[in-house]
């Protein structure tokens, strides 16, 4: 599936929930599907420090695709990063760099990407794109 198809799938899933608490229960559920970072990569260099919750992110470039793994100490943050990885992981660096994430806005979680939010999500998204951009040179060589 393309990045946008994956986003649309999440949007559709969230249309089932009108109550905020149900939405969050779903986010937490999605968090359980997060491809967890290998403990050996859970190091300071991979830590995206938010003011409140921390995110560890690792990326690998395999067969022309970027594969992300991550973890967080807060389970809602875990759900949010799980969704972002679900959408972006397994795509080419160019696809990731050129992607525009609209699903967060559409499902009403835009405040998590505002600078006010200190869950490290905005920094994580930036980091995902930066690392994808880093892999782009390899992509061209391939």
């Amino acid at each position: 599936m393309t990045i946008n198809e994956l986003q649309d799938e999440i949007i559709e899933e969230f249309e089932l929930f009108s109550d905020w608490m149900d939405k969050y229960e779903n986010i937490i559920e999605i968090g359980k599907e997060l491809p967890l970072i290998d403990p050996k990569y859970k190091v300071r260099d991979n830590l995206i420090k938010g003011c409140q919750s921390n995110v560890w992110l690792h990326q690998e470039f395999t067969d022309g695709k970027v594969i992300y793994t991550a973890d967080s100490d807060a389970i809602i943050t875990k759900g949010l990063i799980s969704m972002m990885i679900k959408v972006l992981s397994g795509h080419t660096p160019t696809e990731i760099v050129e992607s525009e994430l609209y699903f967060i806005d559409t499902i009403g979680l835009q405040n998590h990407l505002s600078p006010n939010r200190s869950n490290g999500l905005l920094s994580m998204l930036k980091q995902m794109k930066i690392s994808a951009a880093g892999f782009q040179s390899k992509e061209i060589k391939n």
Partner: peptide, 21 residues
């Protein structure tokens, strides 16, 4: 429970507290 998670779910219930350091 991480304080951020609790703060987040209280917020959605209309309760404003502060979480963090």
């Amino acid at each position: 429970i991480h304080p951020y998670d609790l703060g987040e779910l209280l917020d959605k219930q209309g309760i404003a507290i502060r979480t963090g350091h």
